[in-house]
Design a protein around this nucleic acid. Structure first.
Lengths: 244, 244
DNA sequence: CGTCATCTTGAGGAGTGTCAATAACTGTGG
DNA sequence: CCACAGTTATTGACACTCCTCAAGATGACG
């Protein structure tokens, strides 16, 4: 299964290491296979591993008091699962992780992570950069959720989707169920459904899981005063929005 | 001004270092004084420093398209100002930072930070832990903003305030203007004002900036099914809410 | 073909933002 | 000490957005 370790090596966490260093680090990881809907860990489980996703996608979610799933994130290849508590002792997961489709995951021990951070300065820098980036994305999403209308949020989501999966905006399939998407965006399925209707005015047509967006730039501009898709897709740098 | 460097040394970022190491690192910092409403940096400024707050508090905010301030955070003594971009080259601030009251801040160069991360494994671990913690708090707040009612959010904020500033819940002064608080909570001043009225039913009385909460536990429990104040106040560890 | 989950559509309502008018507070200069 | 301007805070009326509940429609899969 060297193929999967090759994928893991593309994870940004190894970017500041030499080929040899990265190889030796990856050797310590164990490959896991998850089937669709199989759970990697539950909310409350003791946090003992650090994961790198090699293929497939996984839903990170919590169950709110009413029993509804609140999806915090959907992670895919080259993403890492690294809870904040990994640097504490005896910490537990604050959420669940369940495979959306078939997956392959590399698992490393907590000790492995701590040791390498201390020994490899470059490794620490990479992890810091990744966590910082995650932080930044969360800030943007938080702001979006407050400031923007659902139409804008959905359009932004679709655009991110196309960039992340290299999909053709003029005709593509949704990689997840609408239920999952709604949960990820923090809205109800009903609202998502209605929003897709409204988006027809902007050249977005939806039938089943088939989407086609006539002119994504147009739709974006029509809807978003400033929309920071770049932030989520490693295209940042050129900050168009020095608004203050 | 050794007094302020002593405060800076209490910043969690130095926790994994020896006294001597911490001292030598702090020597490299420059003390800055800010007057009330003075700005540390603007959105769009080139990111060149890492800051530790020694005294006073600072508002981290962005101006949305309508010209309203969106307060991302309010930082106080022992907090750090460390933007995600600090590990990139030529990055710019994505927000403004303006002093709420008189402040003293220690400033370090970007290079200082990178160097020490590479050289001191413990330093890297501390920074990672801090950023992770920040991440976690953001996740909680994000969830709060979606799931909870404004009454709950306000009560949680008040409780955090009391813990953070060691205030007596039964009688204390708000340390910031209501405008700033509303902005921080992502609501309008009008809504905040009305919410304070509603909270009277729960034993919270507000007149001007004077607050008195009869029984904060009672108010909490009445309002919050699960409320994670602990998370924001380093009291975590005992996770009561393994709900899923 | 039936069952179950997912999705769509409608009606109704709760909650928060917007706008506007007024009141309270803060600080400045005479 | 007061008068004035500018900010901050309160209160009311209203609109809009999204959620809830309910009923069907569509689709997946044994």
């Amino acid at each position: 299964m060297k193929k999967y370790k090759q994928i893991a090596k593309l994870c940004p966490i190894f970017q500041n290491l030499t080929e040899v260093e990265a190889d030796s680090l990856i050797q310590r990881g164990k490959l896991l296979n998850l089937r669709k809907k199989e759970t990697l860990f539950h909310h409350g489980d003791i946090l003992e591993h650090f994961y790198i996703i090699c293929s497939g996608s996984i839903q990170i979610f919590r169950n709110d008091p009413d029993g509804n799933e609140k999806t915090l994130n959907i992670l895919t290849a080259k993403d890492i699962i690294c809870d904040s508590g990994i640097f504490d002792q005896d910490c537990r997961y604050q959420y669940n992780a369940t495979a959306v489709d078939e997956m392959v995951i590399l698992a490393f021990s907590k000790a492995w992570l701590k040791e390498n951070i201390k020994n490899y300065g470059g490794f620490a820098l990479s992890l810091l950069a990744i966590l910082s980036r995650k932080n930044q994305i969360m800030e943007v999403e938080f702001e979006q959720r407050i400031t923007m209308r659902v139409e804008q949020i959905v359009i932004c989501f679709l655009q991110k989707l196309c960039l992340a999966y290299s999909l053709d905006p003029s005709n593509f399939q949704l990689p997840y169920s609408k239920k999952l998407i709604a949960s990820r965006l923090g809205i109800t399925v009903e609202t998502l459904s209605r929003t897709f209707q409204k988006l027809k005015e902007y050249g977005v047509s939806v039938s089943g899981s088939n989407i086609s967006i006539a002119d994504i730039e147009f739709a974006q501009n029509k809807l978003c005063t400033y929309c920071s898709v770049e932030d989520d897709c490693n295209v940042r740098k050129d900050l168009k929005r020095i608004s203050s």
